[in-house]
Computed example of a mutant assay.
Amino acid sequence: MGGAATIENGCNFIICLGGGGSMDAAKAIAFTAANPRNLWDYTLSRLLKGVKNHEKKVV
């Protein structure tokens, strides 16, 4: 959901305020914006195949 909104709105970066959970959420959003498959497709059990570097900056 967050990654799709990032792509649809043409965002170049993600601003995160807070720590802990909010930082983890921002990282997940950046990751899903740069890698179009479902987030669960990239779990270690699937050996992280097809992962690109983050294309969105997290601030």
Rank of each mutant, 00 (worst) to 15 (best):
L44Y: 08
A28L: 14
P36C: 00
S45Q: 10
K57T: 06
M23C: 09
T6V: 14
L47I: 00
S22Q: 06
I29D: 01
L17H: 07
T32Q: 10
T43F: 10
V51S: 05
K57N: 02
A4N: 09
I15V: 15
G10K: 02
G19Q: 07
G50M: 10
A26L: 03
G2Q: 07
A26Y: 03
A28E: 12
V59N: 02
C11R: 01
L17W: 06
G3N: 03
I29R: 01
N38W: 07
E55Y: 07
A33T: 08
G18N: 05
L48P: 00
L39E: 06
A33W: 05
Y42V: 02
K52V: 07
T43S: 04
W40V: 13
A33L: 06
G20E: 12
C16M: 03
G19T: 11
I29S: 03
G3H: 02
S45H: 06
E8F: 11
A34P: 05
K49L: 15
F31Y: 08
L17A: 09
F31W: 05
K57C: 00
A26P: 00
E55W: 09
V59Y: 09
A5L: 08
I15Y: 15
G18D: 04
A25F: 05
K49A: 14
K57S: 03
A34E: 09
V58P: 00
E55Q: 13
R37F: 09
I7C: 00
G10C: 01
V51K: 05
T43E: 04
H54R: 06
H54D: 04
E8H: 07
A25Y: 02
K56L: 15
D24R: 08
M23D: 01
A25E: 13
G21F: 10
M1D: 13
G19D: 09
W40F: 15
N35K: 11
G19I: 05
T6K: 00
N53G: 12
I29K: 00
K49D: 08
R37T: 05
F31V: 04
V51L: 05
F13G: 12
K49Y: 14
N35S: 12
N38I: 03
V58S: 01
D41E: 14
M1W: 09
K27L: 15
K49I: 15
R46Q: 06
G19M: 06
K52H: 13
A33F: 09
A26I: 04
K52C: 08
K27I: 14
R37S: 11
T32E: 11
D41Y: 14
K56D: 00
G21I: 11
T32C: 12
G10A: 01
L47S: 02
G18H: 03
L47Y: 01
N9K: 11
K56H: 12
E55H: 09
G2S: 10
H54I: 11
A26T: 03
I29V: 15
L47V: 02
A33H: 08
L44F: 08
V59F: 14
F13A: 15
